[in-house]
């Protein structure tokens, strides 16, 4: 299996707080990998570091074997740095989120972030902007009509695949909650990624909706040949679809492996339920 995403020794420190501490993990092609952990463990911070929202304090992230992000403690952090591996990395390479998306990593958000004033169709079309071949002038004077038409056809196909075709002319925010989640995933798919990051896709969903979502994520992996890396709290969903699971607590990796391995691990249970005082 080909290794797609490789996070090496990433540490993320805000002021004096180490949110992610020396985390290493890999995601292979075609896998569904989950990142779980109690609230505040630093899961979303990992996503934000991978997608370029934050620059990691120390460590390296590679995509398809090619380094995309690297940083070392410098400036103010030189003194403040409380993590490990000081001096291991010596280069600074940062990218803005839009460039990461262009490389083929798309994401959804924990709290839905659809474009409020746009219809479902426009939301998807907007995501195709990143793959445009037109420039400002050709787009303005409709010289890219062919591309625009092709994009529309592609968007319609995508909406059909995620079951939102009937709603294509509705305002994105007028959709019911579950469908908004689906639309967010569809929008991320429209950027033509190879790796999809889902940040708590089932947040706020009831068990039945969660079950539907589980099937939906599988469906996406199979039809779009997507690799999926997700953060989730619903254990049923995680254990059901994950090929591998990483568990972090207080920013540190405490366990990783297949769902069975993770479920049986004592450290994971301790992290979620606390350590009993009697022992």
């Amino acid at each position: 299996m080909k290794n797609i995403l490789d996070i090496e020794n990433v540490t993320m420190q805000f002021g004096g707080v180490v949110a992610v501490n020396n985390l290493s993990l890999t995601v292979n092609e075609g896998e569904i990998v989950s990142l779980i952990g109690p609230n505040g463990a630093g899961k979303t911070t990992v996503f934000n570091a991978v997608t370029g929202v934050y620059e990691p304090t120390n460590g390296r992230i590679s995509f398809y074997g090619e380094k995309i992000l690297e940083n070392y403690p410098h400036g103010k952090m030189k003194k403040l740095y409380a993590g490990e591996n000081r001096g291991m990395y010596t280069e600074r390479m940062v990218k803005t989120p839009d460039r990461i998306t262009k490389l083929g990593i798309a994401r959804t958000f924990q709290n839905i972030r659809l474009f409020k004033s746009m219809t479902v169709m426009e939301n998807v079309l907007l995501a195709m902007h990143v793959r445009r071949t037109s420039n400002y002038f050709t787009a303005t004077f409709c010289l890219n009509a062919k591309e625009e038409a092709a994009n529309r056809a592609k968007a319609e196909e995508l909406l059909k695949a995620v079951g939102l075709y009937e709603n294509r002319d509705d305002l994105a925010t007028s959709l019911p909650y579950g469908k908004q989640r689906h639309l967010e995933i569809a929008r991320a798919l429209a950027t033509q990624p190879t790796l999809l990051l889902l940040d708590e896709p089932a947040a706020g969903m009831n068990p039945q909706e969660t079950e539907e979502l589980t099937a939906f994520i599988r469906h996406i992996r199979d039809t779009f040949h997507m690799t999926i890396f997700l953060i989730e709290h619903h254990m049923n969903l995680v254990m059901d679809i994950s090929d591998r699971i990483y568990v972090i607590d207080f920013g540190k990796l405490i366990c990783s492996g297949t769902p069975d391995v993770v479920q049986a691990d004592k450290r994971v249970i301790d992290a979620y339920l606390g350590v009993s005082e009697v022992d």
């Binding site: 997608t51 929202v53 803005t96 989120p97 839009d98 998306t101 262009k102 798309a106 994401r107 958000f109 972030r113 659809l114 474009f115 409020k116 004033s117 746009m118 426009e122 079309l125 907007l126 995501a127 902007h129 990143v130 793959r131 929008r187 991320a188 950027t191």
Partner: peptide, 18 residues
Amino acid sequence: RAFKAIRDDEIAAEAMGI
């Protein structure tokens, strides 16, 4: 559309590659 996306939500727009 990209302009409107920036107006609606800068963070999401950037994450969509704008």
